[in-house]
Design a protein around this nucleic acid. Structure first.
Lengths: 205, 205
DNA sequence: GATTTTTGCACCTAGGTGGAAATT
DNA sequence: TCAATTTCCACCTAGGTGCAAAAA
């Protein structure tokens, strides 16, 4: 596991920024939730192989709850706490904006989920693409979905298969503020938008 | 003509920023060409009515040469000059990035060609969407194309119709530098990205 | 010379960061 | 008091303007 490659049938998916994800995975990745919506960092980038170039596919992401427990960061460690009673709500599906599209299109270059946003606001409505609604202090596992789309005679859509791809190193805990200082230092180190917080920023050549 | 509405069969298209285009049309619109590619301003925004919500359509733009003449700005006026000998080259087609999509999608909101870029560089290759290749000092007329897409049994695509919509007020002359000072003042007045050139910028409340 | 195109630039728009302070 | 969330912010990235000077 955690080798950055996942295979299902004829399809092969590579987690394109695998090594970056591993760095965060080593500190237990945290992702920020807020009302206007926050991007993931790292964001998910895949490379897909083995599609039929002329067939049509819908590519999407599911953010799957890993368990029904509340997690807590204490004494420098994450630990499972009480079980969550209510059914965890949430919009956990995000369809890639290029969907639907041909196999040739999807295989042509990396598939980036750069603009996916996550929120804890139940009333959130992003005009362009719906935001992912999650619960703070819960653990999630992103899962890539690839669905072949067939267009029937009567304008209806029927899918012939759906394949799922999971990369354990992309698991994360949703938070409203970073808990682990080492984790937030990784964010600052690798996210270009956080460059202002790098100690080296003003001293570098 | 120039009322901002165009009808073809069951389809009706409204030029959504009609009044802005009219302001420029009154001064003979100019659009900048350069190597990295330049957006149009105003850019083309349409509202489409009368599609079948569940049918699929491809929406695209053609930048049609109005004539084969070289135009010149002299003594405050544009005039037609010598005829262009060579066949005018160019990539004159720009498929809207949402294509293909359902009638419901297209009719849901205004269709913006905000990110279309124009260039005079024959070797230009924009990774995302191809740039429109035009000739400086030539006159062009944008034309909206709507093509119904039908998916056949054998993964092939066959179109059942294509409708075209032309709005005379969106005609323009391509240039590498603005010729008419009144025209460039309109650009400064209405394009948010040119705000720094507005006289009123620093004196406004 | 004269005209056209290119380059470099200051100045914007638009929006993504984590942190600190305020709020809940 | 404590923990979690929200708000505000300075500081970035990214990239769209017309203009002036340089180049072609």
């Amino acid at each position: 596991t955690c080798n950055g490659i996942s295979i299902s049938g004829k399809l092969k998916v590579v987690l394109h920024n695998h090594s970056l994800w591993l760095k965060f995975y080593g500190q237990q990745t945290e992702m920020i939730l807020n009302k206007p919506g926050r991007r993931m960092f790292p964001f998910l980038v895949y490379k897909i192989h083995g599609m039929n170039p002329v067939a049509h596919y819908r590519v999407f992401l599911e953010i799957v709850p890993v368990d029904e427990y509340h997690w807590r960061f204490q004494d420098g460690r994450w630990s499972q706490c009480e079980k969550t009673e209510n059914n965890m709500p949430g919009n956990l599906l995000y369809v890639h904006p290029d969907s639907p599209n041909t196999g040739a299109h999807w295989m042509n270059k990396e598939i980036k989920f750069e603009k996916l946003k996550m929120t804890n606001n139940k009333e959130a409505t992003n005009s362009e693409n719906k935001m992912i609604l999650l619960q703070s202090f819960h653990k999630y596992q992103p899962r890539l979905g690839i669905e072949e789309v067939r267009y029937g005679k009567h304008e209806t859509t029927s899918s012939s298969f759906t394949h799922s791809f999971t990369f354990p190193e992309t698991e994360f805990i949703a938070v409203t503020a970073y808990q682990n200082a080492k984790l937030s230092q990784l964010k600052i180190k690798y996210n270009p938008f956080a460059r202002g917080f790098r100690e080296s920023y003003h001293s570098e050549e």
